[in-house]
Design a protein around this nucleic acid. Structure first.
Length: 498
DNA sequence: AAAAAAT
């Protein structure tokens, strides 16, 4: 295997190039201008010319820097330029396939591509699960050139022979490292088995572990690695705060920070669907306009929650990692990690929901003593020393729910409906005092010393087996054996690390 | 220890 060519730029070009300097069809340039873009971001400036050349690309750039446009605009240009001569018009084969790991992201990417393609004759559609297949089937049978999909539903359509994929010329894996992880890989491989071997393949993500880089080489031909800044880097414009808390204090801490920093909107990430549902109810009782987004909700509810949040009708979106990747919510000021994510990569993606397109944002991560390993993993991945601070709540906790913690629900006094808004009704307002003390008085020795990746506490019960070997930073693909098994003996040896 | 993606 040949070494991939590496195009890298640590510092953004000081004079960003304009889209209209690119050799693009006027129809595309007009659509880009309609979208309000004149200047390219660094990943766009680097990747678009290479995609236009027809090369396979692995593109890595920080969250919120316009990766979707970086692959879709040159892809549309190539489709306009290179008519599919072999296709018989009656068959309407799909020419470009874009795969995404969540339904909401597939929908968003499809809407972007539709906007860029609006002056062309290319037909763009999106299929994903959770909704009726029939309308999707009708559209597919009518003919579609650009198909955006989540893996499961696409396989359904393939099996039902609703779409023809044997003439696909372009494949994009958005959030490529997620698409290549163990949970998606079997579906992905089945889908790829229906596609021609000769095609242009594009992989894009903000995070690529060395293992995934290696693995992805078996899906790329003579690829160019386009990297803007260090891989796995977090956006510079996101302030990252880490507070040591107890589980019981978490909700009050979030409320306190919302008030203190006057944060009007935030995503609160939790690690489980049930946790998301419960926490959303709790914030709702506190008078915050809250919506939940997780995989146990109907697709209709999921889209409604997200739309309400985007429209600003909702203050808090309590979500699982279904919302961690790719979702573009304009001007979101804050992200909370109510639970520390299990995968360090997901930390990078979660906090990437704020600070998009150059805006500033704050990311607050609540850390309990059980999270030491996870925080160390994040530290190692983002190659930053994380400053863990103690968080002191005001004496009165400012909340009924905190005071009645542990009391049977039926024993609680009926909660009066709030009339004032959450922010106006601040119960702690009478006692203005700093929300937290600097870590001068750490709670115990655990929080006293800085985390180190090598620091190992007694392994938790669930992780006894792994205690001997150091934990992989890329926990997505921890079970190396399984990955190797999928690829048999011919696991690719070429590495992008040089 | 979990979520996501098909039903």
């Amino acid at each position: 295997m040949t070494e991939p060519q590496i195009i890298e730029s640590a510092t953004p070009d000081p004079t960003p190039a304009r889209f209209d300097t690119l050799p693009l069809d006027a129809k595309l340039l007009r659509a880009v201008a309609d979208s309000g873009y004149a200047l390219m971001t660094p990943i766009q400036a680097k990747a678009i010319p290479i995609v236009l050349e027809g090369r396979d690309v692995m593109g890595a750039a920080q969250t919120g820097t316009g990766k979707t446009a970086a692959f879709s605009i040159p892809l549309l240009q190539r489709m306009l330029k290179h008519e599919n001569a072999s296709a018989s018009p009656a068959r309407h084969p799909v020419r470009a396939l874009v795969l995404a790991p969540t339904r909401e992201l597939a929908d968003q990417v499809a809407n972007n591509i539709k906007a860029y393609a609006k002056h062309t004759n290319l037909r763009v559609t999106c299929v994903f699960g959770g909704i009726d297949m029939k309308p999707q089937t009708l559209v597919l049978k009518g003919g579609v050139e650009v198909l955006i999909a989540t893996p499961g539903r696409l396989l359904d359509h393939i099996e039902a022979k609703n779409c023809v994929l044997n003439q696909v010329e372009y494949v994009v894996l958005d959030e490529a490292d997620r698409m290549l992880d163990i949970g998606f890989l079997p579906d992905l491989q089945r889908i790829l088995s229906f596609l021609p071997k000769t095609r242009q393949t594009l992989l894009f993500s903000a995070t690529f572990s060395p293992e995934i880089k290696r693995l992805s080489q078996s899906y790329l031909q003579d690829p160019v690695l386009v990297e803007v800044a260090r891989p796995n880097a977090t956006a510079k414009n996101v302030e990252q705060l880490f507070y040591s808390v107890t589980d019981d204090d978490k909700r009050a801490v979030v409320r306190q920070i919302l008030r203190q920093r006057e944060i009007k909107q935030a995503i609160v990430f939790v690690n489980s669907k049930l946790g998301a549902a419960r926490l959303a109810r709790s914030f709702e009782r506190d008078g915050l306009r809250t919506a939940a987004l997780h995989g146990d909700k109907s697709q209709d509810e999921r889209l409604k929650s997200l739309e309400a949040f985007k429209r600003g009708e909702v203050d808090l979106l309590v979500a699982t990692d279904v919302a961690a990747r790719g979702l573009d919510i304009a001007d979101l000021p804050a992200v909370f990690n109510f639970d520390v994510p299990f995968n360090a990569e997901d930390y990078v993606h979660r906090i990437g929901r704020t600070g998009r397109a150059g805006a500033s944002g704050v990311a607050v991560t609540l850390v309990t003593r059980a999270d030491a390993r996870l925080v160390a993993d994040i530290e190692k991945l983002v190659k930053r020393t994380l400053d863990l601070q103690a968080f002191e709540l005001p004496d009165d906790r400012g909340s009924r729910s905190a005071r009645y913690e542990g009391v049977e629900r039926s024993d609680r006094p009926a909660r009066p409906r709030r009339e004032e808004s959450f922010y106006d009704a601040a119960p702690a307002a009478a006692a203005p005092r700093p929300a937290y003390r600097p870590p001068a008085a750490p709670r115990d020795a655990f929080f006293d010393k800085p985390y180190e990746a090598s620091q190992r506490d007694e392994p938790p019960a669930w992780d006894k087996g792994a205690a001997a070997a150091p934990r992989s930073v890329s926990s997505n693909i921890k079970p190396k054996k399984k990955v190797a098994a999928l690829f048999g003996a011919k696991a690719p040896a070429a590495s992008l690390e040089s």
